[in-house]
Computed example of a mutant assay.
Amino acid sequence: MTATTQLADARISVRHVRKTFDLKGEEFVALGDVSLDVADNEFVTVVGPSGCGKSTLMNILAGLDMPSSGEALVDGDAVTGPGPERGVIFQQYALFPWLTVRKNVEFGLKTAGLNAKDRREKAEHFIDMVGLGQFADALPKMLSGGMKQRCAIARAYAVNPSILLMDEPFGALDALTRVKLQEQLLDTWSRDKRTVVFITHDVDEAVYLANRVVVMAARPGRIFEIVDVDLPYPRTEEMRLSPEFAALRNRVWNAVYHQNP
């Protein structure tokens, strides 16, 4: 499947998106003519070298930045700002420092109008899921960087968006916690069926999670290759050791680190 293939059931569509910035009086092209469709309930990971525009693309999909030309669409409508159907998890924690872990996770639920009892039950479920049950009443300043990110993940899960946009959400976590949250993410995705776009620098993570891996290239930021991951779900730790996984990993690795200009 090529980068420009249009899907009949696309939930997310990127059409010839170009994004430029002024850099000391010169035009810097962060994204150059990027087109991509993501199907409903598909899990797509995005990898590429530093500076290839992964986060810029994510910000455009989240509605936090606008393309210089082209358009991004969700359900056929142009993205003009954030929306409740899109949950976003950034590399930064973006927690309210004056709210406890529980209150941070409840924030979106309160905005959605849930009563206090339902908010607390939902929040506690996702707080326990990310392993912060003992810290539910702690303020962010009392948490490590990895714990803050787990809190941000729980907050995004709690509002149950139909689309998850995730910008290196597990990058700050230790290896064991990272693997556990990968498994939990796939479990909730398999059960609840939502559309996921997940940015990562970790090639193993990209292959392990995805239906498709989008490999980007830099200068200008563009799609270099799209790799179909034809491994069955549920994914297992044994699968990471299989020859099939190794072949896919090597293909993605080579596409990321041995790109021709």
Rank of each mutant, 00 (worst) to 15 (best):
N104L: 06
V252N: 06
P82D: 00
D22Q: 14
E27D: 05
K54G: 07
H16W: 03
R15C: 12
V34R: 07
T4G: 04
D204H: 05
P82N: 01
F224M: 08
V17A: 08
G83R: 15
V34G: 09
R235D: 11
R11T: 09
L181A: 06
Q134Y: 01
S50Q: 00
I153F: 09
F96K: 10
R150A: 00
R86K: 14
L36F: 10
G145N: 03
L143Q: 09
D228G: 10
E121P: 04
E225F: 00
D174F: 13
L185A: 03
A210G: 12
L143T: 06
V14P: 02
L95Y: 08
A210R: 12
R212Y: 03
K141T: 05
D33V: 08
K117T: 15
R155F: 03
W98M: 08
M142S: 15
F135R: 09
H201G: 12
L23R: 15
G83P: 12
N160Q: 14
V79G: 10
V229Y: 12
R119F: 02
F21T: 00
E183A: 14
N254I: 01
L23W: 02
I163C: 04
A39N: 12
F245Q: 07
R235H: 09
T100R: 06
A175V: 14
Q184K: 13
T200P: 02
G133F: 09
P261V: 11
V252A: 07
S68P: 10
G133C: 09
L73K: 11
E183V: 10
K19F: 04
S35Y: 05
M1Q: 13
G51M: 08
R194Y: 04
Q6S: 13
G131T: 03
I89E: 02
D75N: 15
K19Q: 11
L64K: 08
R119W: 01
T5D: 14
G113W: 07
F96I: 06
A156N: 03
F135S: 11
D137R: 11
M129P: 00
K148D: 00
D204V: 00
Y157D: 01
V252D: 08
T195F: 01
T4Q: 12
E121F: 02
Y257Q: 00
V101Y: 04
N260L: 11
N59A: 02
T45W: 01
G145V: 05
H125Q: 11
G113R: 02
A112G: 04
N41T: 15
L99P: 04
D37A: 11
T20V: 14
T80V: 07
E106L: 03
L185N: 06
I60Q: 10
R11E: 15
I226R: 08
L231Q: 07
M166E: 02
D204W: 02
V196Y: 02
A246V: 10
L139E: 03
H258Y: 04
V34Q: 04
V256W: 01
T195G: 02
V79T: 03
V203T: 05
Y233C: 06
S13M: 02
Q134K: 15
